[in-house]
Every structure is written in structure tokens, then in C-alpha cells.
Design a protein around this nucleic acid. Sequence first.
DNA 1: GTGAAAGCGCTAACAT
DNA 2: ATGTTAGCGCTTTCAC
Lengths: 356, 356
Amino acid sequence: MVTMKEIALKSGVTQPTVSVVLNNKKTTVRISPVTRAKILATAESMGYRVNEIARSVKTGKTNTIGVIGVLCSFHCMEIINGISETASARNCTLKLWPCSTLEEVKSAARKCAEQRLGGVICRSLTEEELTAVQTEFKQFGIPVVILVGSGFIPDGCSSVNSGEFDGAVKAVEYLRHLGHCRIGYVTTRYSGKFNERRLNGYIEAMRRNGGQEKSIQVVEISNNDLLPEGDKIKLLAFIRRNRLTACFCGADSLAMKVAYVAEAAGFRIPEDLSIVGFGGTDYSAFANPPLTTVHESFREMGRQAARVLIQTMENPNFPAEKVEIATELVIRSTCAKPNLNSISKTKQGERNETQR
Amino acid sequence: MVTMKEIALKSGVTQPTVSVVLNNKKTTVRISPVTRAKILATAESMGYRVNEIARSVKTGKTNTIGVIGVLCSFHCMEIINGISETASARNCTLKLWPCSTLEEVKSAARKCAEQRLGGVICRSLTEEELTAVQTEFKQFGIPVVILVGSGFIPDGCSSVNSGEFDGAVKAVEYLRHLGHCRIGYVTTRYSGKFNERRLNGYIEAMRRNGGQEKSIQVVEISNNDLLPEGDKIKLLAFIRRNRLTACFCGADSLAMKVAYVAEAAGFRIPEDLSIVGFGGTDYSAFANPPLTTVHESFREMGRQAARVLIQTMENPNFPAEKVEIATELVIRSTCAKPNLNSISKTKQGERNETQR
DNA sequence: GTGAAAGCGCTAACAT
DNA sequence: ATGTTAGCGCTTTCAC
């Protein structure tokens, strides 16, 4: 590849002059228009591309930001796109370190240090993993760690999250507003933990509206691709035993499973059972019926995470910031006023349980 | 950060010696075990991290591979994880350049050159965009461009794709095997184009089994989040006019829309209408009913793309390779033998068309 | 076995 | 207005 030296040679100037011209430095140093034009033309004709690596050795920094963590489908791609939007607008580029074990995280963090990344965004790390990352980075003065998405958030660390608590409250209040009282919460464990912010939002909203303690009903099912038979039975029993007229689900995938299991058991949706999901990624719209859900803006979370990170990179004294991205209730076709006869209908429905 | 110079000073040796030891060079140069141990201990105690950037200026190369293109949800995250798996096993790291316009692609390609990336994987680029990338890279001897996913594939360029043609054939043959003759194809345009490989697979399979030319029926609907009313009518008319007993859909999202529209119009699925999707990402399993679909292994595509790319990086004379990843028919709950009475049932169904 | 010297391509301070 | 000099942190070649 063409270097500044070669351009200098061909233009009859010295290499640092080329550097000054190509970087368009407005320092005290001034270059005559004619020399400047000549250099620019030569660079262009030779197809010069600055060597960012060499520049980085010299300046001691890279404008690269890293993303470490569990980077699995759905939301993550949106988050990454959001990060990329902000990053590229600020002339930063993006490095990815998908990892799922502590060992992988440690190794990624080390590599980030070796590559002198400007800063790192962590996604869905366990407390232990996060500690490892912070230890590595503090030691080397690597500016910042920002968290995005669910998971543990230590003090003194900037973070971006969606307003999960408020979102859950919004969902439950919408159902109550429609007239539902018997609202169950369907949840699952991700990496061994419940999402407590959503659960607490559900509980708070149930209490807030004068709900009895006993009206708070929670069931846990697995989050596999296909629902195990045991979970189907558990789910149906949960709905029937508590005579639920509505289910609020901690994730869209759970809501879709509930819809499927309930319909197969003879419930009509939304007439006999209302369902609200959480997440609101594309496939909730394709669901049958299209899912009423709490929409989280993952792209915006990415944008904000990058913004906070870059700010901290530019000014390490920037105080830690906790950003919360508002959720939005998207009303589609899985909610209706409660059907007071639903219990008898359910009984009838049991007969066709295997029909579809 | 600690440098080799500092370690050298503290260990009472010279900096190149430190370099040799830390890189564990097995060259002619030998270091006495005691010096070696001392250097290693010092480096460890000082928390040394090699400066990869400085190393890269010197060696003139990076072990970074870039991914350029439309990096939107669902499949892309899987592809990226696949790439990352292979890359990290070969000690390469990953840079991402999400872009959707020609300008963005051009700018990304230029930055890849400036950052001296070892190679680049392109995803879902138009012919024009791809040409721009290739022009940039050929000029600077940047090793390779690999394509992954759908889109245009130029000669002389390695590529990885899923066996879409074969997958479509498999889907249609499965339906025929169940007894279906009247099988329609539902498709959409992505960036202005149909996926011809899937369409051709459908046509081929229809012909192959002695199907009449007129039995080949294709409809195009939009791929928005929510199906416009016009598309619903178009879809129902398509099914009824051709008295279809099955729909093969070019994407899972389309299949889910067909299921929704058809059920709303009184069709039972799969009794009255069988549906096969294409893609097989998670949400097809959460669909109602769970979708029978042609599963593409995006992760494997990513793995293979990275493998081919790295091979070419290591040996630029490596011949171009066209890899095709096999698809797999995943049978779930949207297909059954054709219901010979379905036409009359459909007529009945029309009455409840607005009921859900 | 170890040190000395050179140089990768660039930036930046200073000299002319 | 341009050139000179130095040096970022590393790798590599060669001399001792």
C-alpha cells in the first residue's frame, strides 16, 4: 500500500508535510496552496489510504469500541445497530466479542486491553463476569464499562436499561383497565435468574390497584424452542386453577406459547383469555393472533449506550449515568374485556383439547 | 500501560530480549531459563499486555476480519456468532460495519482498507455495492470478499449460501408426499428482488412431479410488520381462486401471516390448509400453530464463511470456493394430508371471517 | 545467550 | 511555508 513517504517522494516534499496536508491540520503550520494541491492530487492518484494502525501507535489510542457478552438473536442485533449508528456518527468503529462463559469473557477482556480499545459495552454479563472485566480494565485505565440489557448493575458504572418495571406496570394496568382482575404472570429463567424488574412491576401494579396478595399468581415455564408436555399441563392448570382471564408474560416467546397452549385447550383468544407479551420484536407482530406487547426499543438502548460510552471516553471524569429507555404498550389483537362465562367455556373446550 | 521497555529495564535486559521471550520465539535465538523466568515474572507482576497495534504496524497486518452489509435481526446475529466462533478459534477478531446504502458501504470499505483488515465478509449487498467493495479491495490487495446469505454472487469470488433451491424442493415434495397437488407459493420482495433460488426450487419441484404448468401459482405480498388489508384480500383470493390445499412460503414471517389470515377466514390449520415456511429461526417454533419449515443453519453459514475467508487470507492463491449449507425440513404442526372437503368448509368459513 | 541497531508508517515539536 | 528530528511500541536481523 502507498505510504506518505512515497507521496512525499513523488511530490518533491518531505513526508511530514504530506501528513500535515492530508490531515488538514489548522495548526500554526501553513502550506502553500500549490504544494497542498499537488500533494492532494498525488495522494488521490496513487490511491492513498491512511494507515490507521500506524496512526494509533503514535497517538496511543484507537477509536474502536468493543461489545462483550451474550450476543444472541432478536434484540442483540438491534442493540448492535443502535451502537453502530452512534459510533459511526462519532467516527468510532465497532468490535464484537460474543462470549458466554467466564473464560471467554476474561479472554475477550484481555484482548480488548491488548488491542487498546477505547471503551467497552457489556451486555448480559453475570456479576462474576462483569467483575472480571472491570478488574482487567481498571488496571489498564481502559475508560469505561457500560451495561446494556438485563443483568447485574454495579454502582459507579454507567448503564442503559429499558424501563422494564414501568413497562410491566403499564401492561397490568391496561389489563385492569379492560376489567381484568385475575391476571397471572408467566415467566422463565434466563441464565438461571428471573427478570426481577418485570416481576416486581407486575406485583406492584397488582397491589397498587387494591389487589389482594393472593391475586398475585406466578408460574414459571422453560424457555426451550418447544414447550415440554409438562409445561403445557402446568400452564393450563395455572390458568384454570386461578380462573385467570388474562396472562401477562415476561417475554413475547412465552406469550406465543401461552396463546398456543390455551387455544389448543379450547380457549379463544382474546375472548376467553387476554395475553400481553414483553419485548415487541418483529415476530410479535407475525404472531397468531398478533400480540399485544410491551415494546422495548433495543436500538435506542444501543444508541444511548454508545453515547454514554463515548462521552466517558472523551472525558474520563464524566459522572456515571443510569439511562432508562421508556417502553411502549403496543396494542394488537390478544386482549379484550374479560369474558365472565369463560370458565364454563373452558370446560366445554376441554373436549376439543386435541383437535388443533 | 506497561511497555516492553519498562520490563526490560526492571529485568536488566534489553527490550528486544523481552520481545523474544514474551513471544516465545523458537528462533535461533535462545534465552537462558533464568533470564526467561525473570522476564516472564516481571511482565506478569507489572500486568503487561502486549500492544497489538504496535505489533500490527510492524508486521503490517491485522488479524481482524470485517463484516459489511445489512445486519438486521434474526438470522444475522446467528451468522455473526458463527463467524466469531471460527474466527476466535483461529485467533482473529471481528469488526462490524452495518450499512444499508451505497454510500455507507463505500465508506465502510474505505475504512476497512484504512484499518488494514485482513479480510472482509459481505452480507446481502446489491451488485453495485459489491462492485464498490471489490474495487476498493482489489486496489489495495486486501485479500478477499466472501458473500454470505442471499443476494448477487459474482464469479471468481468465494461464497457461502444455504441450499435454498434444494430446500424449496424438499418442502414442496413433502407436501406432495402428503397428497397435495394444489400448492401455492407465497413470496415477497427484499430490497426490490424476489429470492429466485427459492422460487425456482418451488417451480422445479412442481414440474418434476408431473405438475401442469398452470398448477404453478405464485402470489406476492408485502413484508411489513402488519399485513395491509389489501394483502389479506389478495392472499385469501389467491388461496380460494386456485383452491389451494397448501401454501409454501418463502419466509417464516410470511407463513405466520398466511396462518393468521387463513384462520381468521375460517380455515383450520393444518386440516384445511397446510403451510410450510422457510428459515426456521426460533420464532417459527413459537408460532401458533408451530410452523413446519425449512431450516437454514445461519450459524454454520457464518462458520464456513469465516473458514473460507481465513484460508484465503493465509493463502491468497486459494481458489474461490462456493459453499452450500444444507437445509433441513423441520416438521411441526402446520401440515396434514389434504382435506378433500376443504372447499366447502372454506365457504362455510367465510361467514365467520370477521370473528377473530 | 544477549545486546545493538534498524525500521514499520505515522504524528508532533521545533528549526529554518 | 517547508524541512528536520524524534519517537510511539514493537519485530527482526545480525553481531558479539
